[in-house]
Amino acid sequence: MNRFNQTIAQPAQSALAVNKVIKNTYMLLSATLLFSGVMAMVSMFFAMPPMAYLISVIGAMLLGMFVLPRTANSSAGLGVIFLITGMLGFGLGAILTLYLQLPHGPQTIATALGGTGVIFLGLSGYALTSKRDFSFMGGFVFAGMLVMMVAIVANIFLSLPFLSLAISAGVMLLMSAYILFQTSQMINGGETNYIYATYSLYMAIFNIFISLLQILGVFGGDD
């Protein structure tokens, strides 16, 4: 009887833990996106120069690499994730200020924002409801990220418009695949830390938005 109870109880506990991770992740993701939006508005209010974007991204990347792994298992991780997303939002504000000065800037920003929302909700909904395990995409996603990063480093110095557009398209596709992978990881118990899960999904959304903004800017004749 005891053994029977254990076999029933273990999957139930596991399902509860998975649901908790998913619920906490989406709640924290909503809060960080909201905070990021507020910080973007602050940055736009003060009309920060484009340099602010680079400084914010560098700071956020360093925090993500060196501070978040040490704090993700404690409540301090919450402060760090808000610091990272706040910095990225602040940097984003500087880019949005630039776009707002262009003829179709507000329309481009609104379309990129709406498009990012639709892509994220669509992919997350698909991963949550399809019952498929997309963990097999891990190798493809991480290898793709490495290739993209090498291309980004090269283009920092080459500044080729075509390469820049190709990187945006590649990053968009990779981040879309990453949303499927990460959501699947949460569902199947591969990711049990909601702070890490939030960070991953936030970075995917941020990169999709920036890439979409650039693609729409170029094809809309704003770049």
Binding site: L54, V57, I58, M61, L62, M65, L146, M149, V150, I152, V153, I156, F157
Partner: peptide, 10 residues
């Protein structure tokens, strides 16, 4: 600085 940070990320 950006290139070095991305290099570290790689």
């Amino acid at each position: 600085a950006m290139a070095v940070t991305i290099g570290m990320m790689i």
